[in-house]
Amino acid sequence: MMRPLLLTLTLLPSLALAQEAETQRFQLERTENGLVRLDRQTGAVSLCQEANGTLSCRMAADERTAYEQELDLLEKRVSALEERLAEAQTGDLPGEAEIEQSLSIMERFMRRFMEIIQEFTNEREQQEPAPNRT
């Protein structure tokens, strides 16, 4: 019973701070033609009009241009990445000769590795005394 109360008392201040930070993100200033909204996190400025009890905001012209330029840049990057991905997927796969060569190298490696293990095993057996059989 005490823990839920303690948890609630601990979380309430942090929830209040989070809500306060969110409500303070935007700042509205009245102008002759409506309102200007400042986003304190991004610095973006929007022009707002009040009609029929609702507030509708639009980006400023220079902000809109910067936004569209960023979108164009991102579209170009996505297109370039899609092209690279398509090229990588249709790239040349190894032919039969290359596969055989790779398998031959792996086989030689495995045979040599097994020989080394056998050498170590033989050396160990020679170094260990024979077990007593009674």
Rank of each mutant, 00 (worst) to 15 (best):
L5Y: 02
E32G: 12
T65H: 07
G43P: 00
E29W: 14
E68W: 14
A44D: 07
A16K: 00
L38F: 10
T23M: 11
L35P: 09
T23P: 02
A61R: 06
E20G: 03
L12C: 01
E22M: 14
G43V: 08
C48E: 00
M59L: 15
E63S: 01
L38W: 07
A16I: 04
L6H: 03
A44S: 08
L17R: 07
L35Y: 13
C57F: 04
T65I: 07
G43L: 02
L38M: 12
E63N: 02
R30Y: 12
A18Q: 12
R3K: 12
L6K: 05
L71C: 13
R64M: 11
R40K: 09
T65G: 08
V36Y: 12
L47S: 11
A44L: 08
Q19E: 11
N33S: 13
T54M: 04
R25G: 05
R3A: 08
A16V: 05
P13F: 00
L28Y: 15
A16W: 05
N33I: 03
L11S: 00
Q41H: 12
E70P: 09
G43F: 01
L9Q: 04
P4C: 01
Q41C: 12
L28V: 14
L38T: 15
V45T: 04
A44H: 04
A51L: 08
M1Y: 10
L7R: 02
Q69W: 11
E50P: 06
R58M: 08
T10P: 04
S14P: 04
L55H: 01
D39V: 02
V36E: 15
R3H: 10
S14L: 10
